[in-house]
């Protein structure tokens, strides 16, 4: 084993990008830094998928135990609201992808515009969700021991409190992810306004984008399972 006692710059192989302003000292090249960040993000996404998988499994088990109850209970979810939210999230995914593209080509106004649109769609999603939740609260369709829908004139056979428990856990955790998404999107927006991103450095935009697409992906499965399937 040997070490070369040259200046740190010499560790950068020929042909590598010039370091940008956000280059961390412990990497050899900016590419290495970007690659590490992206790999880290993918690994993080895989933990997210596994975390949600527990809830999906709970859903399938409840469905397996009580097929009739699940079918009866899901009719009480608002398909149209769910559909609107699906379209909203898909659109926000497109604007997010366009924001990443804008960063890749170095168009700061376009990054900002697309990020703003994404944040806006995320807000719309939460507003629709708010109205859906309010309706469920009013009808007493709540999880577990708080389930009182029968007092409001709805009869669902079996154990619908479990279905609504799963419903609230799944959409609730997803909603928390949307809120976190709004937070990180705002952070990226602020950094974009400061002109931090360009073709040489757009890792945060890209990684937040990956996160946002995952939130979309999960909704793509939640929507048919909770609202549509019978």
């Amino acid at each position: 084993m040997s070490t070369d006692h040259e200046s740190p710059k010499a560790h950068r192989p020929e042909g590598a990008h010039e370091p940008h302003a956000f280059f961390a000292h412990h990497f050899n090249t900016p590419d290495q830094q970007a690659g590490a960040a992206k790999l880290g993000m993918w690994v993080f996404l895989s933990t997210e998928i596994l975390m949600f998988s527990g809830l999906f499994l709970a859903y399938f088990i409840v469905r397996m135990f009580y097929p009739d109850m699940v079918l009866a209970a899901h009719e009480h979810l608002n398909k149209t609201a769910g559909g609107i939210n699906t379209v909203v999230l898909i659109t926000s995914s497109v604007t997010m992808a366009l924001a990443v593209r804008a960063a890749q080509v170095g168009n700061t106004p376009a990054i900002k515009r697309n990020l703003l649109l994404t944040i806006m769609f995320a807000g719309v999603f939460m507003v629709v969700k708010y109205f859906e939740y309010t309706a469920k609260f009013e009808h007493g369709m709540l999880p577990g021991k708080y389930y009182t829908a029968f007092e409001h004139g709805y009869y669902i056979p079996g154990n619908p409190h479990i279905f609504f428990a799963v419903y609230f856990c799944m959409t609730g955790l997803h909603g928390i992810h949307v809120l976190v998404g709004i937070g990180v999107l705002t952070w990226v927006y602020i950094r974009a306004s400061k002109g931090h991103f360009g073709p040489n450095y757009y890792t945060p935009v890209e990684n937040v984008g990956l996160y946002w697409h995952l939130v979309d992906l999960i909704w793509i499965f939640l929507f048919p399972l909770l609202y549509l399937v019978r």
Binding site: Y66, D68, M69, L71, A72, E75, H76, L77, N78, K79, T80, A81, E132, A135, H139, G153, Y154, Y155, P157, G158, N159, R230
Partner: peptide, 25 residues
């Protein structure tokens, strides 16, 4: 609970948001 009991005679009202949902499935 597999066998759902007969629904009580209480009429099932339309509940505002899922009106389009058919009663049968």
């Amino acid at each position: 609970d597999r066998e759902p009991e007969a629904p009580p005679p209480m009429p099932v009202e339309a509940h505002g948001e899922g009106e389009a949902a058919p009663a049968e499935h």
